[in-house]
Design a protein around this nucleic acid. Sequence first.
DNA 1: CTGAAAGCGCTTACAG
DNA 2: CTGAAAGCGCTTACAG
Lengths: 335, 335
Amino acid sequence: MGPTIADVARVAGVSRSTVSYALSGKRSISDETRQRIFDAIHTLGFTANAGARALATQRTMVLGLLMQFEPDEFAPAMLQYVMAVTETARLKGYDILLVTDHDGPAALKRITDSGMVDGVVLLDVLHDDPRLPVLRAAHQPAAMVGLPADPEGMDVYDLDFGEAARQIVDHLSDLGHREIVLITPPKHVFSRGGAYGWRFRDAAVERAALRGVRLMAHHGEADTSRIPAAVNQVLDARAEATALIVHNDATAAMLPAVLGARGVSVPDDLSVVSLYSADFARTFSLPYTFVESAPGLLGQSAVEALVRRIDSPGGLDRPVTRFIAPELVVRGSTR
Amino acid sequence: MGPTIADVARVAGVSRSTVSYALSGKRSISDETRQRIFDAIHTLGFTANAGARALATQRTMVLGLLMQFEPDEFAPAMLQYVMAVTETARLKGYDILLVTDHDGPAALKRITDSGMVDGVVLLDVLHDDPRLPVLRAAHQPAAMVGLPADPEGMDVYDLDFGEAARQIVDHLSDLGHREIVLITPPKHVFSRGGAYGWRFRDAAVERAALRGVRLMAHHGEADTSRIPAAVNQVLDARAEATALIVHNDATAAMLPAVLGARGVSVPDDLSVVSLYSADFARTFSLPYTFVESAPGLLGQSAVEALVRRIDSPGGLDRPVTRFIAPELVVRGSTR
DNA sequence: CTGAAAGCGCTTACAG
DNA sequence: CTGAAAGCGCTTACAG
């Protein structure tokens, strides 16, 4: 195809190894020689072949990004992870192989065994994620977003959902609310093993009890077309509730329309707090007080940890589970 | 790292070439030998190294997907292209290298010159797209979604926006509407060179003139937080209008809330037609009559064309520009 | 039906 | 400061 390192060597009148060293800077080269080499590189338009380099160095400079677009998932939020991951990877010199196969374990095995990537980022890790056994067998560096049951040996980054729930309940309780409704992620998120669902809910329930507040949790509706009816139903059933916590992107996105149609004004009739990213709020023009879910920070942290681990193969530092501290952003939807 | 083809050969008691041929099926092998080979492969857990294979075959089985997440873009719609592209690629045996660099031409040159991919899919191609010169110089198979000024030598897939506009105008005109407002993509889409903006608008204007209908085009607002005000302003200025055409995802997503707040009921007070994908409509629970923008079909077609071209390097068939025929889906938001 | 060997395009000890 | 050579792990003509 394009020119090879041999062509550059010939034009510059040096050996291939010298060209290689000029490229990598791994040994000193006389100014004059280096000049000739880079001139040759320029006139030929040479770029090193990635495959050959990977074969020789055992490094592909590619990271795998494993995610699944569940058909029943609310996709817009996923995109923010993708953006953060690809951007951070590029900053560190890596490209991203995007893997969305329905069969996650098989896909992971494929890209890992064939040496296509130097490491993998797993998104939306489940409590008992079927990809983890594959990962452990593969002995590939990995970083994940989402807390598995057994994070041993893995770098895990996730929001501290428990703390997020406590902050929100405290905030509402401090304001005097005594009847709170919580809309959690849809049922299938729980049964699939999305731990963030019950980590948030259980902490909210516990904290509410501690503070003498009544908090009732309801599953959010997965089918967007049925969300308005579902929200209305919950609100009807809990007429005494003065505050609503929404831990579900799809419901949050539709809430202004639903509450508007219902004639409920926020925060006069109802205080509302949600959990999502500021970007998400902007896209959907959501005005609610919220806890930042920090997809950008999580994606970035995961990639940085992964790259660090790739760079120190010995494993200098032990793998960590790190919880991002949640941050409550008051926007005036509560009183 | 893992076992190599040499390990398999040794265990099976054959030569490396025989193992390779057993894998590829490119020459006949005795049943007994093949059995021994696959046994060895299984017990060793062998998977061919992708880099080595790519170096030998000049094929990486990876496609580059080039897209930009413009900060001012409404991202949710982008995701549907990504899903269609990755899914179709996998079906054809390819993986996807996701490239989102802000400097598109440089990124394209990088992955192309280094031989990381066998071909590229360009999304959101502009009228005078700076990536095209790079592509032509690279001599890499490519397929694009979005119509460039000069598609010569390129496989281009795009919706027939002109026809979409005509169908919509005809539909409204047939229903008796004589005053129509069109909200186009934001101004920056036009100045950036997103041809779909003016292809739709110009066709709508022309068709309206032909049918004796007044049609006023207004740029959509890019800043989501300012969309409600912008829509209200347009509607105030065109109080006589009985129909609204929305060619802007962000505005469409917020339209139910905006019209609801305004007390406008559809289709009694105003007929509404939009242009988006059915998936998008579902995500945002949009009830409007619309023309399907077909991101799934476009992404799939582009990948299939790309793979075809990769497989027939001679270039058996000439590159084509193919417009997907738009399809009007009546949902009862017009009368 | 099978094997020995060259080659894909790099990197990196080993020598000088 | 620079070069010759081996090696990374595959594939594929060339021979038999």
